[in-house]
Design a protein around this nucleic acid. Structure first.
Lengths: 223, 223
DNA sequence: GCTAAAGTAAACGTCAGATGAATTTGCAGG
DNA sequence: CCTGCAAATTCATCTGACGTTTACTTTAGC
Protein backbone atom coordinates (compact mmCIF):
# COMPACT_ATOMS: atom_id res chain seq x y z
CA UNK A 1 0.00 0.00 0.00
CA UNK A 2 1.09 3.52 -0.64
CA UNK A 3 0.78 6.45 1.71
CA UNK A 4 -0.68 6.83 5.16
CA UNK A 5 -4.17 5.79 6.15
CA UNK A 6 -5.26 9.38 5.89
CA UNK A 7 -4.06 9.59 2.29
CA UNK A 8 -5.67 6.31 1.42
CA UNK A 9 -8.89 7.47 3.02
CA UNK A 10 -8.74 10.71 1.05
CA UNK A 11 -8.19 8.78 -2.14
CA UNK A 12 -11.08 6.47 -1.34
CA UNK A 13 -13.34 9.38 -0.53
CA UNK A 14 -12.37 11.16 -3.74
CA UNK A 15 -13.03 7.99 -5.69
CA UNK A 16 -16.43 7.69 -4.08
CA UNK A 17 -17.22 11.30 -4.98
CA UNK A 18 -16.23 10.79 -8.60
CA UNK A 19 -18.07 7.48 -8.76
CA UNK A 20 -21.19 8.98 -7.26
CA UNK A 21 -21.16 11.79 -9.83
CA UNK A 22 -21.64 14.38 -7.11
CA UNK A 23 -22.15 17.92 -8.31
CA UNK A 24 -20.56 21.08 -6.90
CA UNK A 25 -22.48 22.07 -3.81
CA UNK A 26 -23.59 18.56 -2.97
CA UNK A 27 -23.21 17.42 0.57
CA UNK A 28 -20.78 14.83 1.86
CA UNK A 29 -21.67 12.49 4.73
CA UNK A 30 -20.73 13.75 8.15
CA UNK A 31 -17.50 12.77 9.87
CA UNK A 32 -19.04 10.08 12.04
CA UNK A 33 -20.55 8.33 9.04
CA UNK A 34 -17.32 8.58 7.08
CA UNK A 35 -15.56 6.91 10.02
CA UNK A 36 -17.64 3.79 9.50
CA UNK A 37 -17.65 3.89 5.73
CA UNK A 38 -13.89 4.34 5.44
CA UNK A 39 -13.13 2.17 8.42
CA UNK A 40 -10.79 4.64 10.15
CA UNK A 41 -10.82 6.76 13.26
CA UNK A 42 -12.04 10.29 13.48
CA UNK A 43 -8.69 12.08 13.33
CA UNK A 44 -7.93 10.20 10.16
CA UNK A 45 -11.24 11.16 8.60
CA UNK A 46 -10.60 14.75 9.47
CA UNK A 47 -7.15 14.66 7.91
CA UNK A 48 -8.52 13.06 4.78
CA UNK A 49 -11.22 15.68 4.48
CA UNK A 50 -8.73 18.46 5.12
CA UNK A 51 -6.53 17.02 2.41
CA UNK A 52 -9.29 17.33 -0.16
CA UNK A 53 -10.35 20.67 1.23
CA UNK A 54 -6.85 22.03 0.74
CA UNK A 55 -7.20 21.17 -2.92
CA UNK A 56 -10.45 23.11 -2.95
CA UNK A 57 -12.31 19.95 -3.80
CA UNK A 58 -14.26 20.01 -0.57
CA UNK A 59 -15.51 22.94 1.40
CA UNK A 60 -16.01 22.46 5.12
CA UNK A 61 -18.45 24.71 6.90
CA UNK A 62 -18.53 24.45 10.66
CA UNK A 63 -21.95 23.65 11.95
CA UNK A 64 -23.34 23.04 8.50
CA UNK A 65 -21.44 20.16 6.99
CA UNK A 66 -18.98 19.36 4.26
CA UNK A 67 -19.75 19.99 0.61
CA UNK A 68 -18.30 19.58 -2.83
CA UNK A 69 -16.72 22.91 -3.54
CA UNK A 70 -18.59 25.11 -6.01
CA UNK A 71 -15.30 26.77 -6.91
CA UNK A 72 -14.18 23.57 -8.59
CA UNK A 73 -10.87 22.75 -7.17
CA UNK A 74 -8.01 25.11 -7.95
CA UNK A 75 -5.65 25.00 -5.00
CA UNK A 76 -4.24 28.12 -3.42
CA UNK A 77 -0.74 29.06 -4.50
CA UNK A 78 -0.44 25.76 -6.33
CA UNK A 79 3.09 26.48 -7.45
CA UNK A 80 4.52 27.44 -4.11
CA UNK A 81 5.43 30.96 -5.15
CA UNK A 82 5.54 31.99 -1.48
CA UNK A 83 8.78 30.13 -1.12
CA UNK A 84 10.50 31.82 -4.02
CA UNK A 85 13.25 34.01 -2.67
CA UNK A 86 13.76 36.37 -5.60
CA UNK A 87 10.35 37.97 -5.94
CA UNK A 88 11.70 40.37 -8.52
CA UNK A 89 12.63 37.61 -10.91
CA UNK A 90 9.37 35.82 -10.21
CA UNK A 91 7.42 38.89 -11.27
CA UNK A 92 9.45 39.08 -14.47
CA UNK A 93 8.94 35.41 -15.15
CA UNK A 94 5.21 35.65 -14.58
CA UNK A 95 4.95 38.54 -16.97
CA UNK A 96 6.97 36.65 -19.56
CA UNK A 97 4.60 33.73 -19.14
CA UNK A 98 1.61 36.00 -19.55
CA UNK A 99 3.11 37.44 -22.73
CA UNK A 100 3.25 33.92 -24.09
CA UNK A 101 -0.19 32.88 -22.95
CA UNK A 102 -2.62 35.72 -22.93
CA UNK A 103 -2.44 37.06 -26.47
CA UNK A 104 -3.34 33.62 -27.77
CA UNK A 105 -6.04 33.28 -25.14
CA UNK A 106 -7.52 36.59 -26.20
CA UNK A 107 -7.45 35.36 -29.78
CA UNK A 108 -9.30 32.20 -28.78
CA UNK A 109 -11.86 34.26 -26.94
CA UNK A 110 -12.33 36.43 -30.02
CA UNK A 111 -12.83 33.32 -32.11
CA UNK A 112 -15.38 31.70 -29.88
CA UNK A 113 -17.17 34.22 -27.72
CA UNK A 114 -20.74 35.07 -28.62
CA UNK A 115 -21.73 38.71 -28.18
CA UNK A 116 -24.12 37.78 -25.39
CA UNK A 117 -21.29 36.19 -23.43
CA UNK A 118 -19.30 39.41 -23.39
CA UNK A 119 -21.58 41.20 -20.95
CA UNK A 120 -19.60 40.27 -17.89
CA UNK A 121 -16.36 41.22 -19.58
CA UNK A 122 -17.64 44.70 -20.31
CA UNK A 123 -18.83 45.01 -16.74
CA UNK A 124 -15.42 44.09 -15.42
CA UNK A 125 -13.74 46.51 -17.78
CA UNK A 126 -16.02 49.22 -16.49
CA UNK A 127 -15.13 48.33 -12.90
CA UNK A 128 -11.44 48.69 -13.67
CA UNK A 129 -12.06 52.05 -15.27
CA UNK A 130 -14.04 53.27 -12.29
CA UNK A 131 -11.33 52.25 -9.86
CA UNK A 132 -8.73 53.97 -11.99
CA UNK A 133 -10.96 57.04 -12.07
CA UNK A 134 -11.00 57.02 -8.28
CA UNK A 135 -7.25 56.39 -8.25
CA UNK A 136 -7.74 53.18 -6.32
CA UNK A 137 -5.63 50.07 -6.58
CA UNK A 138 -7.16 48.25 -9.52
CA UNK A 139 -4.91 45.17 -9.68
CA UNK A 140 -7.58 42.89 -8.30
CA UNK A 141 -10.16 44.07 -10.79
CA UNK A 142 -7.62 43.89 -13.59
CA UNK A 143 -6.94 40.27 -12.70
CA UNK A 144 -10.67 39.55 -12.85
CA UNK A 145 -10.81 41.12 -16.30
CA UNK A 146 -8.03 38.91 -17.63
CA UNK A 147 -9.53 35.86 -15.97
CA UNK A 148 -12.86 36.49 -17.65
CA UNK A 149 -11.15 36.52 -21.03
CA UNK A 150 -9.73 33.12 -20.17
CA UNK A 151 -13.25 31.94 -19.40
CA UNK A 152 -14.43 33.19 -22.77
CA UNK A 153 -11.70 31.20 -24.47
CA UNK A 154 -13.81 28.12 -23.86
CA UNK A 155 -10.72 26.18 -22.79
CA UNK A 156 -11.20 24.57 -19.39
CA UNK A 157 -7.50 24.14 -18.72
CA UNK A 158 -6.85 27.80 -19.49
CA UNK A 159 -9.81 28.87 -17.40
CA UNK A 160 -8.33 27.10 -14.40
CA UNK A 161 -4.77 28.16 -15.00
CA UNK A 162 -5.05 31.88 -15.58
CA UNK A 163 -6.53 32.89 -12.22
CA UNK A 164 -3.50 31.40 -10.53
CA UNK A 165 -1.15 33.46 -12.64
CA UNK A 166 -3.00 36.75 -12.46
CA UNK A 167 -3.62 36.41 -8.72
CA UNK A 168 0.06 35.85 -8.11
CA UNK A 169 0.77 39.15 -9.75
CA UNK A 170 -1.53 41.11 -7.48
CA UNK A 171 0.35 39.89 -4.43
CA UNK A 172 3.47 41.92 -5.07
CA UNK A 173 2.47 45.33 -5.93
CA UNK A 174 0.40 48.28 -5.08
CA UNK A 175 2.07 50.03 -7.93
CA UNK A 176 -0.38 52.45 -9.35
CA UNK A 177 1.18 54.44 -12.11
CA UNK A 178 -1.35 56.94 -13.31
CA UNK A 179 0.29 57.52 -16.65
CA UNK A 180 0.07 53.82 -17.32
CA UNK A 181 -3.44 53.62 -15.94
CA UNK A 182 -4.79 55.69 -18.80
CA UNK A 183 -3.09 53.40 -21.29
CA UNK A 184 -4.63 50.45 -19.47
CA UNK A 185 -8.07 51.88 -20.03
CA UNK A 186 -7.44 52.30 -23.73
CA UNK A 187 -5.90 48.90 -24.33
CA UNK A 188 -8.64 47.19 -22.33
CA UNK A 189 -11.17 48.82 -24.60
CA UNK A 190 -9.33 47.66 -27.67
CA UNK A 191 -9.23 44.11 -26.35
CA UNK A 192 -12.94 44.12 -25.60
CA UNK A 193 -13.74 45.52 -28.98
CA UNK A 194 -11.65 42.93 -30.77
CA UNK A 195 -13.31 40.09 -28.87
CA UNK A 196 -16.77 41.43 -29.53
CA UNK A 197 -15.96 41.84 -33.21
CA UNK A 198 -14.65 38.28 -33.30
CA UNK A 199 -11.35 39.56 -34.57
CA UNK A 200 -8.71 37.16 -33.21
CA UNK A 201 -5.78 38.85 -34.86
CA UNK A 202 -6.65 42.22 -33.41
CA UNK A 203 -7.33 40.67 -30.02
CA UNK A 204 -3.91 39.01 -30.04
CA UNK A 205 -2.16 42.26 -30.87
CA UNK A 206 -4.11 44.34 -28.41
CA UNK A 207 -3.37 41.94 -25.57
CA UNK A 208 0.27 41.69 -26.53
CA UNK A 209 0.59 45.45 -26.53
CA UNK A 210 -1.25 45.69 -23.24
CA UNK A 211 1.11 43.30 -21.49
CA UNK A 212 4.16 44.89 -23.01
CA UNK A 213 3.11 48.13 -21.40
CA UNK A 214 3.20 46.38 -18.05
CA UNK A 215 6.60 44.97 -18.79
CA UNK A 216 7.95 48.38 -19.71
CA UNK A 217 6.52 49.76 -16.50
CA UNK A 218 8.18 47.05 -14.49
CA UNK A 219 11.50 47.62 -16.18
CA UNK A 220 11.27 51.31 -15.57
CA UNK A 221 10.30 50.81 -11.96
CA UNK A 222 13.29 48.73 -11.00
CA UNK A 223 16.18 50.00 -13.03
CA UNK B 1 -9.50 36.92 11.97
CA UNK B 2 -9.77 34.80 8.89
CA UNK B 3 -9.97 31.04 8.75
CA UNK B 4 -9.78 28.33 11.35
CA UNK B 5 -7.06 28.02 13.93
CA UNK B 6 -5.46 25.32 11.85
CA UNK B 7 -5.24 27.63 8.84
CA UNK B 8 -3.89 30.45 10.93
CA UNK B 9 -1.35 28.11 12.42
CA UNK B 10 -0.33 26.93 8.95
CA UNK B 11 0.02 30.52 7.83
CA UNK B 12 2.09 31.37 10.89
CA UNK B 13 4.30 28.36 10.38
CA UNK B 14 4.79 29.20 6.72
CA UNK B 15 5.63 32.74 7.66
CA UNK B 16 8.18 31.49 10.13
CA UNK B 17 9.72 29.25 7.49
CA UNK B 18 10.00 32.08 5.02
CA UNK B 19 11.33 34.42 7.67
CA UNK B 20 13.89 31.92 8.82
CA UNK B 21 15.14 31.45 5.25
CA UNK B 22 14.97 27.68 5.61
CA UNK B 23 16.32 25.71 2.69
CA UNK B 24 14.79 22.64 1.07
CA UNK B 25 15.62 19.64 3.21
CA UNK B 26 15.89 21.60 6.44
CA UNK B 27 14.15 20.24 9.47
CA UNK B 28 11.09 21.71 11.14
CA UNK B 29 10.59 21.53 14.91
CA UNK B 30 8.70 18.52 16.13
CA UNK B 31 4.98 18.59 16.78
CA UNK B 32 5.27 19.03 20.52
CA UNK B 33 7.47 22.07 20.11
CA UNK B 34 5.21 23.57 17.47
CA UNK B 35 2.34 23.17 19.92
CA UNK B 36 4.01 25.59 22.28
CA UNK B 37 5.34 27.93 19.67
CA UNK B 38 2.03 28.27 17.85
CA UNK B 39 -0.04 28.09 21.00
CA UNK B 40 -2.45 25.42 19.80
CA UNK B 41 -3.17 21.79 20.56
CA UNK B 42 -1.68 18.84 18.85
CA UNK B 43 -4.55 18.08 16.46
CA UNK B 44 -4.36 21.62 15.23
CA UNK B 45 -0.61 21.45 14.72
CA UNK B 46 -1.06 18.27 12.79
CA UNK B 47 -3.71 19.79 10.56
CA UNK B 48 -1.56 22.82 9.92
CA UNK B 49 1.40 20.66 8.97
CA UNK B 50 -0.78 18.52 6.76
CA UNK B 51 -2.03 21.63 5.01
CA UNK B 52 1.48 22.66 4.09
CA UNK B 53 2.41 19.09 3.26
CA UNK B 54 -0.47 18.86 0.81
CA UNK B 55 1.03 21.83 -0.99
CA UNK B 56 4.31 19.95 -1.11
CA UNK B 57 5.92 22.62 1.01
CA UNK B 58 6.60 20.23 3.87
CA UNK B 59 7.46 16.57 3.75
CA UNK B 60 6.53 14.48 6.77
CA UNK B 61 8.50 11.31 7.42
CA UNK B 62 7.22 9.10 10.21
CA UNK B 63 9.85 8.41 12.79
CA UNK B 64 12.26 10.91 11.33
CA UNK B 65 10.63 14.31 11.46
CA UNK B 66 9.18 16.97 9.24
CA UNK B 67 11.27 18.73 6.62
CA UNK B 68 11.07 21.45 4.02
CA UNK B 69 10.29 19.59 0.85
CA UNK B 70 13.15 19.32 -1.61
CA UNK B 71 10.62 19.12 -4.44
CA UNK B 72 9.80 22.80 -3.93
CA UNK B 73 6.10 22.95 -3.55
CA UNK B 74 4.06 22.16 -6.61
CA UNK B 75 0.82 20.62 -5.40
CA UNK B 76 -0.60 17.46 -6.87
CA UNK B 77 -3.36 17.96 -9.41
CA UNK B 78 -3.46 21.65 -8.56
CA UNK B 79 -6.28 22.32 -10.99
CA UNK B 80 -8.60 19.58 -9.86
CA UNK B 81 -8.63 17.81 -13.20
CA UNK B 82 -9.81 14.62 -11.46
CA UNK B 83 -13.21 16.17 -11.09
CA UNK B 84 -13.60 17.09 -14.74
CA UNK B 85 -16.32 14.93 -16.21
CA UNK B 86 -15.52 15.24 -19.90
CA UNK B 87 -12.01 13.86 -20.06
CA UNK B 88 -12.08 13.98 -23.83
CA UNK B 89 -12.52 17.74 -23.90
CA UNK B 90 -9.96 18.14 -21.15
CA UNK B 91 -7.38 16.33 -23.24
CA UNK B 92 -8.16 18.58 -26.19
CA UNK B 93 -7.95 21.68 -24.01
CA UNK B 94 -4.63 20.62 -22.55
CA UNK B 95 -3.20 20.06 -25.98
CA UNK B 96 -4.48 23.42 -27.13
CA UNK B 97 -2.78 24.97 -24.12
CA UNK B 98 0.44 23.18 -24.90
CA UNK B 99 0.29 24.43 -28.48
CA UNK B 100 0.14 27.94 -27.10
CA UNK B 101 2.83 27.49 -24.49
CA UNK B 102 5.46 25.06 -25.54
CA UNK B 103 6.67 26.46 -28.86
CA UNK B 104 7.49 29.73 -27.14
CA UNK B 105 9.05 27.86 -24.25
CA UNK B 106 11.25 25.94 -26.66
CA UNK B 107 12.22 29.23 -28.26
CA UNK B 108 13.19 30.64 -24.86
CA UNK B 109 15.24 27.55 -24.15
CA UNK B 110 16.99 27.95 -27.48
CA UNK B 111 17.75 31.56 -26.64
CA UNK B 112 19.15 30.93 -23.22
CA UNK B 113 20.44 27.40 -22.84
CA UNK B 114 24.17 26.89 -22.80
CA UNK B 115 25.44 23.80 -24.61
CA UNK B 116 26.60 22.30 -21.32
CA UNK B 117 23.10 22.55 -19.91
CA UNK B 118 21.66 20.42 -22.70
CA UNK B 119 23.21 17.18 -21.49
CA UNK B 120 20.21 16.09 -19.50
CA UNK B 121 17.88 16.94 -22.35
CA UNK B 122 19.79 14.70 -24.72
CA UNK B 123 19.73 11.94 -22.14
CA UNK B 124 15.99 12.20 -21.79
CA UNK B 125 15.54 12.21 -25.55
CA UNK B 126 17.59 9.06 -25.71
CA UNK B 127 15.43 7.45 -23.04
CA UNK B 128 12.31 8.19 -25.03
CA UNK B 129 13.88 6.71 -28.12
CA UNK B 130 14.88 3.57 -26.28
CA UNK B 131 11.41 3.08 -24.88
CA UNK B 132 9.93 3.58 -28.32
CA UNK B 133 12.43 1.08 -29.66
CA UNK B 134 11.20 -1.44 -27.11
CA UNK B 135 7.61 -0.51 -27.92
CA UNK B 136 7.00 0.51 -24.34
CA UNK B 137 4.70 3.25 -23.16
CA UNK B 138 6.87 6.34 -23.40
CA UNK B 139 4.42 9.00 -22.22
CA UNK B 140 6.14 9.41 -18.88
CA UNK B 141 9.55 9.84 -20.46
CA UNK B 142 8.08 12.19 -23.07
CA UNK B 143 6.65 14.35 -20.28
CA UNK B 144 10.09 14.47 -18.67
CA UNK B 145 11.59 15.59 -21.97
CA UNK B 146 9.16 18.46 -22.32
CA UNK B 147 9.58 19.41 -18.68
CA UNK B 148 13.34 19.60 -19.10
CA UNK B 149 12.89 22.07 -21.94
CA UNK B 150 10.81 24.18 -19.59
CA UNK B 151 13.67 24.07 -17.11
CA UNK B 152 16.08 25.22 -19.79
CA UNK B 153 13.84 28.20 -20.52
CA UNK B 154 15.20 29.77 -17.36
CA UNK B 155 11.71 30.90 -16.39
CA UNK B 156 10.78 29.76 -12.89
CA UNK B 157 7.05 30.10 -13.40
CA UNK B 158 7.20 28.03 -16.57
CA UNK B 159 9.40 25.46 -14.88
CA UNK B 160 6.78 24.95 -12.20
CA UNK B 161 3.80 25.05 -14.51
CA UNK B 162 4.76 22.67 -17.27
CA UNK B 163 5.14 19.51 -15.19
CA UNK B 164 1.55 19.87 -14.09
CA UNK B 165 0.34 20.07 -17.66
CA UNK B 166 2.44 17.29 -19.10
CA UNK B 167 1.72 14.98 -16.17
CA UNK B 168 -1.99 15.46 -16.62
CA UNK B 169 -1.66 14.23 -20.16
CA UNK B 170 -0.02 10.97 -19.17
CA UNK B 171 -2.98 10.07 -16.98
CA UNK B 172 -5.37 9.45 -19.81
CA UNK B 173 -3.69 7.34 -22.29
CA UNK B 174 -1.66 4.34 -23.01
CA UNK B 175 -2.02 5.17 -26.62
CA UNK B 176 1.05 4.02 -28.39
CA UNK B 177 0.80 4.63 -32.08
CA UNK B 178 3.91 3.27 -33.67
CA UNK B 179 3.57 5.27 -36.86
CA UNK B 180 3.52 8.42 -34.77
CA UNK B 181 6.27 7.16 -32.50
CA UNK B 182 8.78 7.37 -35.33
CA UNK B 183 7.72 10.93 -36.04
CA UNK B 184 8.14 11.68 -32.36
CA UNK B 185 11.74 10.53 -32.52
CA UNK B 186 12.45 12.78 -35.47
CA UNK B 187 10.76 15.87 -34.13
CA UNK B 188 12.41 15.44 -30.75
CA UNK B 189 15.75 15.40 -32.49
CA UNK B 190 14.92 18.55 -34.39
CA UNK B 191 13.90 20.28 -31.19
CA UNK B 192 17.10 19.28 -29.43
CA UNK B 193 19.18 20.39 -32.35
CA UNK B 194 17.48 23.77 -32.54
CA UNK B 195 18.00 24.36 -28.82
CA UNK B 196 21.64 23.37 -29.00
CA UNK B 197 22.18 25.61 -32.00
CA UNK B 198 20.52 28.47 -30.12
CA UNK B 199 18.04 28.81 -32.92
CA UNK B 200 14.79 30.02 -31.31
CA UNK B 201 12.81 30.27 -34.53
CA UNK B 202 13.60 26.71 -35.50
CA UNK B 203 12.87 25.51 -31.97
CA UNK B 204 9.49 27.20 -32.05
CA UNK B 205 8.57 25.62 -35.33
CA UNK B 206 9.84 22.18 -34.41
CA UNK B 207 7.87 22.14 -31.18
CA UNK B 208 4.77 23.46 -32.87
CA UNK B 209 4.98 20.74 -35.50
CA UNK B 210 5.63 18.13 -32.83
CA UNK B 211 2.52 19.04 -30.87
CA UNK B 212 0.39 19.29 -33.97
CA UNK B 213 1.27 15.70 -34.68
CA UNK B 214 -0.16 14.78 -31.32
CA UNK B 215 -3.29 16.75 -32.01
CA UNK B 216 -3.78 15.04 -35.34
CA UNK B 217 -3.32 11.71 -33.65
CA UNK B 218 -5.90 12.56 -31.06
CA UNK B 219 -8.37 13.71 -33.67
CA UNK B 220 -7.87 10.55 -35.67
CA UNK B 221 -8.22 8.40 -32.60
CA UNK B 222 -11.61 9.65 -31.57
CA UNK B 223 -13.47 10.43 -34.76
C1' DG C 1 39.01 -3.21 16.31
C1' DC C 2 35.17 -4.13 13.36
C1' DT C 3 30.67 -5.69 12.27
C1' DA C 4 26.10 -6.86 12.97
C1' DA C 5 22.28 -7.77 15.77
C1' DA C 6 19.54 -6.20 19.52
C1' DG C 7 17.76 -2.61 22.15
C1' DT C 8 16.37 2.19 23.09
C1' DA C 9 14.82 6.73 22.20
C1' DA C 10 12.62 10.07 19.20
C1' DA C 11 9.11 11.42 16.18
C1' DC C 12 5.02 10.88 13.58
C1' DG C 13 0.30 8.00 13.06
C1' DT C 14 -4.03 6.64 14.80
C1' DC C 15 -7.73 6.19 17.97
C1' DA C 16 -11.04 7.75 21.50
C1' DG C 17 -13.57 10.88 24.47
C1' DA C 18 -14.84 15.43 26.05
C1' DT C 19 -15.85 20.05 25.32
C1' DG C 20 -16.41 24.34 22.42
C1' DA C 21 -18.30 27.00 18.45
C1' DA C 22 -21.10 27.77 14.45
C1' DT C 23 -25.06 26.71 11.80
C1' DT C 24 -29.46 24.94 10.88
C1' DT C 25 -33.93 23.63 12.24
C1' DG C 26 -38.15 23.61 14.75
C1' DC C 27 -41.33 25.70 17.66
C1' DA C 28 -43.74 29.26 20.18
C1' DG C 29 -45.49 33.80 20.16
C1' DG C 30 -46.97 37.72 17.87
C1' DC D 1 -46.51 35.05 7.79
C1' DC D 2 -42.76 36.66 10.35
C1' DT D 3 -39.70 36.92 14.39
C1' DG D 4 -36.92 35.23 18.01
C1' DC D 5 -35.33 31.85 20.99
C1' DA D 6 -34.04 27.02 21.97
C1' DA D 7 -32.55 22.56 20.67
C1' DA D 8 -30.23 19.52 17.57
C1' DT D 9 -26.68 18.90 14.26
C1' DT D 10 -22.10 19.26 12.69
C1' DC D 11 -17.53 20.65 12.54
C1' DA D 12 -13.30 22.53 15.67
C1' DT D 13 -10.18 21.90 19.20
C1' DC D 14 -7.92 19.93 23.22
C1' DT D 15 -6.13 16.10 25.69
C1' DG D 16 -4.29 11.55 26.61
C1' DA D 17 -3.07 7.00 25.31
C1' DC D 18 -0.99 3.68 22.45
C1' DG D 19 0.98 2.03 17.88
C1' DT D 20 4.50 2.36 14.12
C1' DT D 21 8.53 3.85 11.89
C1' DT D 22 13.02 5.61 11.86
C1' DA D 23 17.48 6.76 13.73
C1' DC D 24 20.78 6.05 17.00
C1' DT D 25 23.23 3.40 20.69
C1' DT D 26 24.74 -0.50 22.81
C1' DT D 27 26.55 -4.85 22.89
C1' DA D 28 27.78 -9.60 21.59
C1' DG D 29 30.55 -12.11 18.55
C1' DC D 30 34.39 -12.58 15.77
Amino acid sequence: MTGSKAEQAAEALLGWIVEERLLPGDRIPREEELEERLGVGRSTVREAVKLLASRNILEVRQGAGTFLSPKQGVAEDPFGFVLVQDKRKLAEDLLELRLILEPSIAALAAERALPAECKKLLLLRQQVEEQIGRKENHLQADAAFHTEIARLSGNGAVRRLLPVITQSVTLDGELTDMALAQETVETHREICQAIQENNPRKAWQAMYYHLQLNRRRMDRQLT
